[in-house]
């Protein structure tokens, strides 16, 4: 489904200046900006301090990187999860099982 041709029709007046924001190109630009910021941030951190800004004395290195990888893995694992444990939307109501008190009277 694509946006209606006259995509400004029905828009809230406050949102009109931002109408292009959902186009794929805007998304790509935002993505690139964020990527630059992230890489820049880590670069800056490495330059400014030796071995990364140690946020806490005992925790060394750019420990934020690990969660990023983990988040990516989690998102990808989501596919497996969807395959494994998702069921049709009417799973519970279709099965006779869910007919409890609500319907007997």
């Amino acid at each position: 489904m694509t946006a209606p041709r006259d995509s400004k029709a029905g828009m809230h007046p406050l949102a009109r200046p931002l109408s292009g924001l959902s186009s794929p190109r805007a998304g790509l630009i935002a993505l690139i900006v964020i990527a630059v910021l992230v890489v820049g941030g880590f670069a800056l951190e490495t330059v400014l301090s030796d071995g990364g800004l140690s946020k806490y004395p005992e925790v060394y290195g750019a420990y934020e990187l690990l969660p990023l990888a983990a988040a990516a893995v989690a998102i990808l694992l989501g596919w497996g999860l969807v395959w494994l444990i998702s069921r049709p939307g009417d799973f519970y109501s279709r099965a006779a099982g869910d007919v409890t008190e609500g319907q007997d009277d």
Partner: peptide, 12 residues
């Protein structure tokens, strides 16, 4: 950093 990084992963 954490925030921006997660946004990056999400965006990608």
């Amino acid at each position: 950093q954490l925030l921006l990084g997660t946004m990056l992963v999400f965006g990608l």
